[in-house]
């Protein structure tokens, strides 16, 4: 391999920083714990990351459009509870589309408020986080929701099934990532999301309908949340009202870890997938190292902050700078 000059390393680091960080984590954990890179463990990490990952795919759209979505956690609880409840009432065939319709309606409300009324997305989705939580509790009467006949339903296939030896949640995550990756990276709609997130005035001046674009991003986010809720419900076949609580921050962390800018206009689906995997492998690695579950919260966040800092530092070419 040809030696790289110092000048060449900078740009490579800047572009591939997150991949390099990923590689370093993987190598470090593999050395520390031989079990880490075993097929079983990798499958188990990816499967347990699938729910978070599916949600992160949708939030990537919202973040690139220059907005936030903090409601995904409580919206996922809502989807899970609703689909479990309807499963016994109208059967899984109807329960699934009904749950999707209800979740999309919530996404449409947010999309309308943020897109068409131009309200601040932080305030709107923070409010929705709380409002949807209340809605879920009202719906369930505060009770846990369980499917009566857990053995006899084909509904468990989304969370527990395998196809070609691969767990279905992983397949759903992979297929959705591939599909949304194409939507974001290759279609006119995707291009307009980057334009709106990068400079919504210039996008408007170029004929992009900002409100519609933002609205659609929230619909996509809601659809991803509904899918995540489906996997969650199918995996456990019973759930508490708070199953998605706190996930919104983990999702956001994965998206940022992937390198999407909170200011909007940058990020990709591929990078978000990497972000999700890093987050999953870090948590798993820490567990294998025997760290207490609670310590994970702290360490995870330290690592995220470090990764984001290194990413920015690589772009600037130095560790600290008085200007952006």
């Amino acid at each position: 391999m040809a030696a790289l000059s110092k000048a060449q390393i900078g740009p490579i680091l800047a572009k591939q920083g997150i991949l390099i960080a990923f590689a370093v984590f993987m190598i470090a954990f593999t050395i520390a714990s031989p079990k880490f890179l075993s097929v079983d463990n990798v499958f188990s990490v990816v499967r347990s990351s699938a729910i978070l990952g599916v949600m992160a795919l949708g939030v990537t759209f919202v973040v690139i459009s220059g907005n936030l979505d903090l409601s995904v956690g409580s919206m996922m609880s809502f989807s899970t509870i609703v689909v479990l409840d309807l499963h016994d009432k109208i059967g899984p065939f109807l329960a699934i589309p009904a749950m999707f319709a209800m979740t999309l309606a919530l996404g449409a409300i947010i999309g309308f408020l943020v897109g068409y009324l131009r309200l601040n997305s932080l305030i709107v989705t923070l409010g929705m986080l709380s409002a949807i939580h209340g809605l879920t509790l009202t719906y369930s009467g505060g009770q846990n929701m369980d499917i009566a006949d857990k053995e006899g339903t084909w509904f468990s296939v989304f969370g527990q099934g395998t196809a070609l030896g691969i767990p279905v949640p992983i397949l759903i995550f992979a297929a959705l990532a591939a599909f949304l990756g194409l939507v974001l990276g290759k279609t006119a709609f995707g291009r307009k999301i980057y334009a709106v997130g990068g400079n919504d005035t210039a996008a408007t001046f170029s004929g992009v309908r900002r409100a519609r674009t933002v609205f659609n991003c929230y619909l996509i986010s809601a659809a991803c949340v509904a899918t995540a809720g489906l996997i969650q419900a199918s995996r456990s076949l019973g759930s508490q009202n708070t199953v998605g609580q706190g996930l919104e921050l983990e999702v956001l962390a994965a998206v940022i870890l992937g390198g999407a800018s909170l200011l909007g206009g940058s990020g990709t689906i591929f990078k978000t997938v990497i972000g999700v995997l890093i987050l999953g492998f870090i948590q798993n690695g820490l567990l294998l190292l025997g760290l207490q579950f609670y310590v994970q919260f702290v360490v995870t966040w330290v690592i995220i902050i470090l990764a984001v800092w290194l990413d920015i530092a690589a772009k600037r070419g130095k560790l600290w700078s008085p200007i952006a």
């Binding site: 194409l182 290759k186 980057y194 996008a203 992009v208 206009g265 940058s266």
Partner: peptide, 25 residues
């Protein structure tokens, strides 16, 4: 301009809906 966007994408932004190859741009 969307300053973070590349030159080509800036230039074709108003007609990006019309430049189609199947479902893609």
């Amino acid at each position: 301009l969307v300053l973070e966007m590349n030159c080509r994408d800036n230039m074709t932004l108003p007609q990006v809906d019309d430049l189609k190859a199947g479902p893609f741009v």
